[in-house]
Amino acid sequence: MIAGPGALHRYGLLGMNRRNGDFIQKYNPRRLYPLVDNKLLTKQLAVRAGIAVPKLYAVVEIQHQVRDLLELIGDEEDFVIKPAQGSGGKGVLVVTGRARDRFRLSSGNVLTIAEVSHHVSNILSGMHSLGGKPDIAMIEYRVKFDRLFEKLSYRGVPDIRMIVFRGVPVAAMVRLPTRMSDGKANLHQGAVGVGVDLVTGTTVSGVWRDKIVDHHPDTGSPLAGTVIPHWDRLCELGARCYDLVGLGYLGCDIVLDRDLGPLVLELNARPGLNIQLADGEGLLAKLRPIEALQEVPSSPEERAALGRLLARK
């Protein structure tokens, strides 16, 4: 089972080195990183541009505020606490219900306010941020996910990861939390990645822990064949995220809320390569034609259409 270098190339697979050297270094100017590395900043930008995001309830900026955490949370029954500069879903606490000062997490665990406060303190001290920088904690709306993925998902919020290159959507996958990923939608934490056909918005087979799977490991439901509604709008949303931050090689995480529709959860300047496993197609082969374009259309709608056109075979 040894494949020569030609094999990876034949599938147009994008390797880590090429992603870093030829795409991230080239298309993502470093000065723009803070716009996506700091989720609070991304959220503010999105709100200004009229892109729907989960509502921000409160921000904890200094240790002193942790004492007043209960007041900051107010009456919210369910919410999400996350570090503004976390990466890979680290430090995200999803609270699905509460009884006074005891909080039930999406995993089923119950935490006291002291434990939640400790978690917030950890966020502030930089435990979950890149390079251990002091951080701030965001308390925001917990997405009530669309019934569409209900059967497919084990707790947590499934999201849609879209790779947008020069503003053109090139690939997408649905990330389904599993028991192993503890409600988180990150593939390396054990979530299932399900490739989405960019043309039709239909799911194809998925990947779980580096293996191709046809069924969800926890729920047993078949992964393929789900049609994501309003797929064209989702593609446009992804394309608009490019205008938001200007990063040429961008990962957009979008969630489908039951009531609010698609919401942009966060943006990523260094999106992972696992999406290639999810849809079984090499990214490089999709990026090259767009890289060769002299100019890409300026309107997000045209770019979304272009992306779907290029995906057609």
Binding site: M1, I2, A3, P5, A7, L8, H9, Y11, L13, G15, M16, N17, R18, N20, G21, D22, V207, D210, K211, I212, L273, Q276, L277, G280, E281, G282
Partner: peptide, 15 residues
Amino acid sequence: TGYRLSEFWRFRAVL
């Protein structure tokens, strides 16, 4: 910018 050796293993599912 070539592939890493480990990527032959990582992407084996696709291959």
